[in-house]
Design a protein around this nucleic acid. Structure first.
Length: 508
RNA sequence: GGUCCGUUCAUCUAAGGGUUAGGAUUCAAGAUUUUCAUUCUUGCCAUAGGGGUUCGAAUCCCCUACGGACUACCA
């Protein structure tokens, strides 16, 4: 790589960023870091009608939570700013003018109604290309058909106009995509795209090419939905005379809806049973709330790991990667060509792997607020102990409570299945013996409890599994959880005896 | 409709002319455990179809089917 790597993530702030967008940002970021390059965040807000308050901040917050660090952007600054296209408005006009002057673009004055009529007529006549194009522009109202004088007078009158790209006729455009190879398209299937809108703003196509040029972007890594416009962009670079510094293109496979059809979209919200947004989002107009990965209890590192593997793989059998490991392993060659469906089950597994790797103190720090919400205030040491005992059995922090409530509260009711299977008529008497035995222990520690229990049950030849399970039922309310003596040590002698007596009284 | 892109287990994917087509998740069974979970072992499950090229094809070529994207003065 001779040229310095500069890549950009260029979302449009029309709502919350969904996970496909985060993945695009991630791949750009990994590529930049891998090559000691620069990762730029550029906001593409040239469509004023689709402005959504809060969306821009949401995008920046999402990247930050994900651990994707922006080098140049609105908040970070940089030599190539501003990084919001609406703040660059004054820049684009001259480039559109340049193309008109050099004959690569022209003015068009057709009204929306006239365009609609043209399309209808073309459809009826079964034309293969129903667009504003070399074959149709001759019948429309534009500077090509009206002549210089009339064009000038319309322009001077202040009438609305757009600037369109003058698509060459019947020319084969060859463009190279780093993931898919050469893509060939004949310009006769393309159209005279609007470059500059009547509201004074550029369209995506113009702004994108101009900004990538001005910001010295080396690689354009974006979603596959842009593949069809790559030929147009290549032609724009050529028309500007920038072909020598044109960035390389890589079009990422799409993230698909898991239930089958189509690319994942913002509207999928929570319909599929999992979040499509990194952070929770409240729609500013409807007030509708969409859940986020952060609020659902995903660990950011796990979230990134999951996303990284949707469309890319390291070529080895390693699956758990830190961000730095992803940077080291990443390469565009290993990006898969086909779209990927999100696998919710595997996402849970990933989160479990990261949750288990958390230290007890870290997990306790995340679980303690939930405990306090339940009205339980205890020492951090005890919370850590509980976390260490249950973390293997949960996928999310919020599940810790379900697995650990009995450490803090005596069971209210007892699993009828377990009662039916284990609670025999002789049990209350045996538990009475157990109570006396435990009461006599000086050191109420797990090893001592363990030893005493074994001694009693073996010497009296009691059914080990039966008694232990009833004891567990008394402590936990069902047959689950870690080693029983460990639970009992945690609860303490007084509470243990209380729970045994309560169970005997309740179950009978 | 047109243009372009794609297609390996249910899902994410490996194998870039020669492997019993590998791994992971899910699911099932077993082991371990007083229980549940973890863990470990085992199992089930795939090259869309058809033609070529080749000694040999998941891999290269063509056709078909299916899927997707795009086709706005949206990005």
């Amino acid at each position: 790589m001779t040229q310095k790597v500069r890549v950009r993530f260029a979302p449009s702030p029309t709502g919350p960023l969904h996970i496909g967008g985060v993945r695009t940002a991630l791949y750009n970021y990994l590529f930049a870091r891998k090559h000691q390059g620069t990762f730029i965040l550029r906001i593409e807000d040239t469509d004023q009608t689709r402005f959504v308050p809060g969306a821009e901040q949401y995008i920046m917050n999402s990247l930050r939570w994900s651990g994707i660090i922006v080098d140049e952007g609105i908040e970070e600054g940089g030599e190539y700013g501003p990084y919001r296209q609406s703040d660059r408005k004054h820049l684009y006009r001259q480039y559109a003018d340049q193309l008109v002057e050099t004959g690569f673009a022209y003015y068009a004055f057709d009204t929306p109604e006239e365009l609609e009529t043209m399309r209808k007529q073309l459809e009826e006549s079964k034309a293969t290309n129903t667009a504003y194009s070399p074959s149709t522009r001759g019948g429309m109202k534009n500077s090509l058909t009206l002549g210089e004088a009339e064009t000038k007078s319309i322009l001077d009158s202040g009438a609305p106009y757009v600037i369109r790209f003058k698509m060459p006729e019947n020319e084969e455009v060859v463009a190279t995509d780093l993931i898919r190879g050469e893509v060939r398209v004949n310009t006769s299937t393309l159209d005279d795209k609007v470059l500059f809108k009547s509201d004074g703003m550029p369209t995506y196509h113009l702004a994108n090419v101009v900004d990538d040029y001005l910001m010295k972007i080396s690689h354009v890594i974006r979603g596959e939905e842009w593949l069809p416009s790559m030929p147009l962009h290549v032609l724009l670079y050529r028309s500007f005379g920038w072909q020598d510094v044109m960035p390389k293109f890589a079009h990422l496979p799409l993230l698909l809806k898991p239930d089958g059809k189509g690319k994942l979209s913002k509207r999928d919200g929570d319909r599929l049973g999992f979040p499509v947004f990194p952070l929770q989002w409240t729609d500013p107009t409807s007030g509708e709330i969409s859940s986020g990965y952060r609020e659902s209890g995903y660990i950011p590192e796990a979230f990134i790991n999951i996303l990284a593997f949707l469309g890319w793989n390291p070529g080895t059998e390693q699956e758990l990667f830190t961000m730095q490991e992803l940077v080291d392993a990443f390469s565009i060659e290993h990006i898969h060509k086909a779209g990927a469906k999100f696998d919710f089950e595997k996402a849970k597994w990933f989160n479990h792997q990261y949750l288990v790797k958390l230290s007890d103190a870290e997990l306790a720090g995340m679980f303690n607020p939930i405990l306090e919400q339940k009205g339980i205030f205890t020492t951090l040491a005890r919370v850590e102990k509980v976390c260490s005992l249950v973390k293997e059995r949960v996928n999310f922090v919020k599940e810790v409570w379900e697995q650990a409530s009995y450490f803090f509260l005596a069971p209210k009711d007892y699993d009828p299945e377990v009662i039916k299977k284990r609670w025999k008529p002789e049990i209350p008497a045996i538990l009475k013996e157990v109570t006396q035995l435990l009461d006599g222990l000086n050191d109420f520690s797990a090893p001592d409890i363990h030893e005493a229990l074994h001694f009693l049950l073996e010497s009296k030849k009691y059914n080990f599994g039966q008694v232990m399970n009833c004891l567990r039922l008394s402590m936990v309310g069902t047959s689950k959880g870690p080693d029983l003596p460990v639970i009992m040590e945690f609860l303490g002698k007084k509470e243990v005896i209380f729970r045994i007596e309560k169970a005997v009284k309740t179950i009978g």
